[in-house]
Design a protein around this nucleic acid. Sequence first.
DNA 1: TGTTAGCACTCAATCGCATTGATTGCTAAC
DNA 2: GTTAGCAATCAATGCGATTGAGTGCTAACA
Lengths: 349, 349
Amino acid sequence: MAKELSERKKRILHALVDLYITTGQPVSSSDIQSKYLPEVSSATVRSELSALEALGYIEQPHTSAGRVPLKEAYKLYVESINSDGASMLTDRETAFIREKFMHKLGQVENLSKEAAKVISDVTNYTSFFIEKSLAGIKIEEVKLVPLKDNRAIVLIVTSKGVIADNAIELKGDVKQEYIETASRLLGNVFAGRLIEDMDKFSLDEIDVEIQGFKDILDEVLGILRIYVNEHSDDNVFVEGALKMLDYPEYNNVEDAKNFLSVISDKGSMSELFADDDTSIEFSVRIGKEDSGVDKCAIITAAYKVGDEVMGQAGVIGPERMDYKKVIGVLDCMKKTLSTVIENSNDNED
Amino acid sequence: MAKELSERKKRILHALVDLYITTGQPVSSSDIQSKYLPEVSSATVRSELSALEALGYIEQPHTSAGRVPLKEAYKLYVESINSDGASMLTDRETAFIREKFMHKLGQVENLSKEAAKVISDVTNYTSFFIEKSLAGIKIEEVKLVPLKDNRAIVLIVTSKGVIADNAIELKGDVKQEYIETASRLLGNVFAGRLIEDMDKFSLDEIDVEIQGFKDILDEVLGILRIYVNEHSDDNVFVEGALKMLDYPEYNNVEDAKNFLSVISDKGSMSELFADDDTSIEFSVRIGKEDSGVDKCAIITAAYKVGDEVMGQAGVIGPERMDYKKVIGVLDCMKKTLSTVIENSNDNED
DNA sequence: TGTTAGCACTCAATCGCATTGATTGCTAAC
DNA sequence: GTTAGCAATCAATGCGATTGAGTGCTAACA
């Protein structure tokens, strides 16, 4: 990438990618000339294309075919879109996204899934949403609720819902008073803490009036730890996985199968994005060889509430995808989601 | 089906299906003759095949090709397997299934999912498990747990876990005594009832000491109803969906896509089996035209605990699938699962 | 009457070959 | 530096010939 390309080369490259994105076919010099550069001849375009090919931006599938963009060409194309800045969605599309979420207030449960669905619906590509599942969830209260037969339930109220999985066994004499003291104590110890910290939290720090309650504190901590371990995997929502099969790039069963198997495995999905730099707003990756989703481009956006990264949303599509639109949708979704979340936080408090 | 086929016709038909299942190619008269009926000539087989074709058991894709079984042929084939009775699994396979579940005791949570996975792993076909989600779940206790700020949580303990989703707002003065009475009352009213009945349960039947508690009873009933509505859909677990793409029947993207879209939609899956007669142990359906999974055979088994149908497990594969093995696996799974469930019930009580 | 060998017939699949058409690279002129 | 013109290239398409697997039919046989 040493030198800057001439302005005309840039225009030709941009035109080529544009055409290739819409048609999926190798682009000929005359296509470019007639639709994008009527002021010069196709022969001129041809010589420019030769140069661009030598520079590694494009290639020919075979001698008598048009040109196809390579990764470097896409990168340049995406850059130019990003710097463009104009809104890339129609009003109708923006409205569609807004509307989908505005009446979803309160049901934060499936927000991520819904977001993935909307992204996929609007873009017509496969989309995903990776939710950092435990980030920022705070314990509000801990209660001990006695049941029959000397059993009790530990009720853990968090900022995002109630955990009340396990019934625990209480030994010996269970007085009302014991329950109350234990409840109060549990509240004191755990309330206000982040649930994700429970993994490395130690009871040694606390030693106020735990005579006789050590067991139960241990048990609750155990429950919390199990919960953290079981839920620490990121939640991955994939929507529209089958849409990829509509694009000719995946028109053979072998590739399709490979794509779907990566896409539907949460493990490999989390992995695929584990090393993403979430400080960057949008990241575009084109043709990550080793990933198993070869021949794909992946656009991701980091979603934050305050400074905390809540998750990543993104789109997986063919390299020749409609980058403008996708980035537009992710951006719109970002704004809409943060409005929704802020509102719902306000409502809750 | 008016007349019984001659013994030789049956043998030939069975041979044809056998061969077709393993090769996937049209079967010729000489194939059958050399591998299954060496005592006659291929010409004889040919005339028998002619007859079988006239009877609608088989057909030729084109004049100069071998024969391919039709639905009726498969049905007969499956019948003969069923009446066969011999165990159709290797010891190794049986052991594999057993082993997978024996150390899963207690984690009844994902049993259905795991079952589907094992079935798919052993058979190498797409498998599914449809779990009647609410069948037989009984409410054991209902408690009201006060939180801060005049809120409270309704804790519903069932035979299969705890429901504690919603915090409700209590109005006015909340005394300890009120909570206790309400808790007791809620227990009296709801304990012992089946959760699936809550949809049509009415409070009118009860009118003991509900002065002042009508509101809270209504609210709890509301929570239960919402729960029933949200969970009344059957849980559908599909495993190995992509395995179908390994078979040449689904070697074109269009069909593959169609298959996957049916398979991955819980709604259409439940629908597909809604009208199944669950009193039959195994049901085999070959080529259900209208279902969207054309060109498939579906084998299902009903899973019961006592008399209650807990779910249906099954396999979806190409019509020419290894019926012996699949039925064997479903049968083995059936036995293994009922052992596991009985044991885990014993442990619990 | 059922079975068999032999042979002609059929037809999908494959191969080879010529044709087409899109597109380029090159060259010579502007 | 740009352009028109032209030969060269090569995937794709179409078409006819060939192949071969497999059948159906017929006549002879047990």
